[in-house]
Write a protein that binds this DNA or RNA. Structure first.
Length: 432
DNA sequence: TCTGGGGTCCTAGGACCC
DNA sequence: TCTGGGGTCCTAGGACCC
């Protein structure tokens, strides 16, 4: 048995923890650069606001209904997420952190020796997460991950269930499959949904009833075959336990849409250097080194220019590294290869791939380790200082502002950002 | 004027090897 | 000159997820 614990409107819920007066009121959180809606309270959803709506398009509606608007505050959300995941780690035999606001729990062996019923267990977990962190969640329990996802969706949708749905019988499984539209099944996106509707398959139940050959042919090969089997109740996807409540990535990316289009090489170089530097920090945090580095540059897909909207170049590094100085230098070299004068670039990013545990790089016969002990210590110091005093306290000159600049030219809007209540001493909430 | 920022996995095809 | 059946590795692209 698997459980999926999923927060309700996670980013909105995080903001509400620190502003309880917003309970029951419409609230939204915007993406980077205050671009789109990425989290909506139930009240905001009821107004017809959709995930991904561009802010400037729905602004009149937001004002008309006095919707509270927040810029995203990932330092806060990340910290709240760690609290939730830590607690789940205490009460479940194994936890897979699936995203910032969702976790799969492996419940095999809990009943009857540890808990009496999974239903009661789920209700307790849910109540404790709320009491300890202020974050409301729903729980779906089923024999497969795909069915747990589906149960979770119904637990969210049907208030009468009290936030928990356990698909503990064949009848309940069949009933649940009937309630869910095919496009809402985990693993069915826009393309597949269109194809399935055209074939007359409109519910999860109908999808569960299609042949394996059909699934293989039309839903991405083995992926589709697994999906259908999971819906029928045969587990094909195992739990990938997350050590210490965090997810070790196979690739890392740091990218941003600029506050405004940039055409000057030094501006974009500054941005790419900052992204490479940030990516290097993430890499060291998970204890890895990278041997592939990609830089990409993007142009607006909403402007008059035809595709392609982005270009990229990948460097194979001679030796895997997590050193900021080295990665920034490679990123700048890659950007130079990519750069074409005269374009208005709207976004850029740095991707690190080919990750391996740091310090285990295989050296060729005639190679010497390029990252000295001294350099590794320097990086450790840098990370410690930035952890203690806030991101960006210590950084490379390459990522610093030019003389006379107040903000980086690539940084965007964040008009409604809340303080980092839980991760910066200066922003601690004062009660008095 | 203003449209996010991360990730995963799979497949097909080509280069190259024995 | 032409012929075979495996393999592996890499890359690009496409689908999906939150």
């Amino acid at each position: 048995m698997y459980a999926l614990v999923d927060a309700n409107n996670f980013y909105v819920s995080c903001e509400r923890v620190f502003q309880p007066r917003l309970d029951g009121r419409p609230v939204v959180v915007l993406s980077n650069n205050d671009g789109c809606l990425i989290s909506r309270s139930a009240e905001a959803k009821a107004l017809g606001l959709r995930m991904g709506d561009p802010y400037f398009q729905v602004k009149p509606l937001l004002e008309q209904h006095h919707v509270t608007v927040f810029s995203s505050n990932y330092a806060l959300y990340g910290d709240m997420s760690r609290r939730v995941m830590w607690y789940l780690g205490q009460v479940a035999p194994a936890v897979e952190v699936y995203s910032i606001d969702e976790a799969f729990l492996d419940l095999h062996g809990l009943v009857p020796f540890v808990v009496e019923s999974l239903d009661a267990y789920a209700r307790t977990v849910r109540a404790n997460v709320l009491a300890r962190t202020g974050i409301p969640t729903c729980v779906g329990i089923a024999p497969t991950k795909t069915l747990a996802k589906l149960a979770n969706r119904l637990a969210k949708k049907l208030p009468a269930l009290g936030g928990v749905l356990h698909l503990d019988s064949e009848d309940r499984r069949r009933w649940a499959l009937e309630q869910v539209a095919v496009q809402d099944v985990w693993g069915i996106g826009r393309q597949y949904a269109t194809k399935l509707h055209a074939a007359g398959i409109t519910t999860a139940a109908a999808l569960a009833g299609c042949t394996e050959a059909y699934a293989r042919r039309h839903l991405g090969g083995v992926v589709g075959a697994r999906l259908v089997r999971e819906l029928r109740g045969y587990p094909c996807l195992g739990l990938a336990p997350s050590e210490d409540g965090t997810l070790a990535r196979r690739s890392l990316c740091c990218s941003r849409t600029f506050g405004r289009p940039l055409s000057a090489f030094p501006d974009v170089t500054g941005a790419v250097s900052a992204f490479a530097s940030r990516a290097a920090e993430k890499l060291r945090r998970q204890g890895d080194a990278a041997h592939l580095l990609t830089v990409f540059l993007g142009k607006s897909r909403y402007g008059p220019e035809p595709p392609p909207y982005s270009c990229s170049t990948t460097l194979t590094l001679p030796v895997a590294t997590s050193d900021t100085v080295a990665l920034v230098r490679y990123a700048r070299a890659a950007l130079k290869k990519l750069w074409q004068a005269g374009h208005r670039y709207t976004n850029a990013g740095v991707v690190l791939d080919g990750l391996e545990p740091a310090g285990q790089a295989q050296l060729g016969l005639f190679e010497v380790a390029p990252v000295s002990e001294k350099r590794a210590r320097l990086m450790a110091e840098l990370d410690a200082l930035n952890r203690r005093f806030g991101k960006g306290t210590v950084r490379l000159a390459a990522t610093a502002l030019a003389p006379g600049q107040v903000v980086s030219p690539w940084e965007g809007q964040a008009q409604w950002r809340t303080p980092q209540y839980t991760t910066r001493l200066e922003d601690l909430l004062l009660v008095g």
